[in-house]
């Protein structure tokens, strides 16, 4: 029930969802674009791990860094070739483009690799547990929490103390004004896509760490989680994304404990009932943003 194991597992899941939501909201904050190709970045991370663990003797840590890099470069590349050309047109054009990119990447994986699941070899650490205060806690969950803390600290420092980070936050407040001050739109947007890709890459390590396999459609569930978490937390704020991720994880974990076994397969449905209730009470999400809505490319 609600014991230490439950708490650590929930925090771990929340950490994963928080990073997931952050990657989606950092682009939304600036472009007002929900990037539906976000899930495919996780797929890219997964396939990078699959290909490298099979074909190279590289240590796992190096491989995971390369997986994050692959997700980041894919994110930057999609921005450059797909989103940038339609950015000045309309938000709808960008939205449709994101669906197109998503489909393209998925079909690319289907064609080049296989529609079937591919096993990703994980280090021993991912399968072992450690005893903490009398309960067994998987190392994977502890690693997720530690990675999330490190990521949040680094991201906060970037956004607080570097001019580029300040420019990113300014662009989320008012993009046009940021450009009037001389900050190039492309720099801001590329940085946002890079951060988004890094988040997806980090998440891919732990997401795939749970199933130890990767499929072309593996991106859909995390995209949905990220989307719902940001809606709960508030689409306009990075804090909201983190809060949303943890709230989502808490609700889903509690449902896992308290729902009778015969209703367990409807866990997601119950989850969305909660989401609807939250949105009825606070339509703007849990964390409110002071700034007005505006978009400009």
């Amino acid at each position: 029930m609600i014991n230490l194991e439950f708490i650590i597992n929930t925090i771990s899941l929340g950490s994963l969802y928080a990073m997931l939501a952050l990657g989606l909201v950092i682009i939304y904050g600036i472009l007002r674009l929900v990037n539906f190709a976000y899930g495919e970045l996780i797929m890219i991370g997964g396939y990078t791990m699959f290909l490298l663990t099979g074909a190279t003797p590289l240590p796992w840590l190096v491989i995971s860094f390369l997986a994050v890099a692959a997700a980041m470069f894919t994110s930057l590349f999609t921005e450059l070739v797909a989103f940038r050309p339609v950015r000045e047109k309309s938000l709808t054009a960008m939205l449709i483009t994101s669906f197109a990119v998503s489909t393209l990447l998925q079909n690319g994986a289907l064609l080049i690799i296989s529609p079937r699941a591919r096993a990703v070899t994980l280090p021993q650490l991912f399968q072992t547990s450690v005893m903490i205060a009398g309960t067994s806690v998987p190392w994977r969950n502890i690693l997720t929490i530690l990675t999330c803390i490190a990521t949040l600290v680094l991201l906060t420092m970037l956004l607080r103390y570097t001019v580029l980070g300040i420019a990113l936050r300014a662009a989320a407040d008012n993009f046009t004004m940021t450009r009037i001050l001389g900050v190039p739109a492309n720099t801001v947007i590329s940085t946002a896509f890079a951060i988004s890709g890094i988040m997806a890459g980090i998440v891919s390590i732990f997401w795939i760490g749970r199933s130890a396999s990767v499929t072309p459609t593996i991106g859909a569930p995390p995209l949905l989680v990220a989307f719902v978490a940001t809606v709960i937390g508030g689409m306009r704020s990075l804090t909201g994304a983190v809060v949303g991720g943890f709230v989502y994880a808490t609700i889903i974990s509690l449902l896992g404990v308290f729902l009778p076994p015969e209703l367990m397969e409807f866990r997601e449905a119950f989850m969305f009932v909660f989401v609807i209730i939250i949105l009825l009470v606070r339509p703007q999400g849990l964390v409110r943003s002071k700034t007005s809505v505006e978009r400009m490319g």
Partner: peptide
């Protein structure tokens, strides 16, 4: 611009820092 368009969520110092971006 009209309506000032300062960045409300940035501190005064951060607003000024971005002013010097170029």
């Amino acid at each position: 611009p009209e309506g000032r368009d300062i960045f409300p969520s940035l501190t005064v110092e951060e607003n000024l820092r971005l002013g010097a971006y170029t």
